[in-house]
Design a protein around this nucleic acid. Sequence first.
DNA 1: GCCCAGGTGGGTA
DNA 2: TACCCACATGGG
Length: 235
Amino acid sequence: MMPSRDDTATRLIEVYHRLYAHFGPQHWWPHSRGGAFEIIVGAILTQNTAWTNVEKALANLRRARWLTPGALHRAPTARLARLIRPSGYFNLKAKKLKAFTRFLFAEHRGRLAHLFALDSARLREELLAVYGIGPETADSIILYAARQPIFVVDAYTRRVFARLGLARAEVSYDEWQALFMRNLPHAELMFNEYHALIVALGKQVCRKRVPRCGECPLRETCLTGRVTYPLPLPA
DNA sequence: GCCCAGGTGGGTA
DNA sequence: TACCCACATGGG
């Protein structure tokens, strides 16, 4: 049986506090300089890719002065692909970046402020219609670039909270998102930090395959007060 | 060498 | 709808 609503809300907030106490602030976007457009480019480049690789690609784009909508819109796809090579899937991602700027200029005069003036439901709908932008990337853009409160779900979120017994891992992206949005206050900064903290945890304890029985970073602050792997399970 | 990373779109049954 | 697969570099 799934936990009751209040139970779930309490637990989600509890997990947040424990993660924050353990890992501290993660300084994800928009703490980074570079502005909203760079966040969008980063969100596309980081799809199934380590952030360290994305940073190299972003550095190349910055050096070329291509980190603006206009510059990227004018950039030849083949040259763009070369610059973003370190981030992997470079041909695909060059196409995706071009698809975004094409959309931005076609529908919003090339202006992010115009795009971000949409309410988040409409914004999400428009982003999802762009080639290469799926639910996680759309929500990352809405949260971290447009700074509207929406919960970003990624693979770690599913693994972590499925193990906590809050939902089955297989339920849809939108259902996972609804679980958090129903049970947490819609606070942009908290959603920002929560997602980043889940990634920090996931990196350490929640690998794709091997349920490697290493050190659980939450062992001092475990929900149950017991050391369990890979995450403190509900009592 | 092998596994993994802040997913997405396309194809097939 | 539910799987499978391609996409690709760099670090542990």
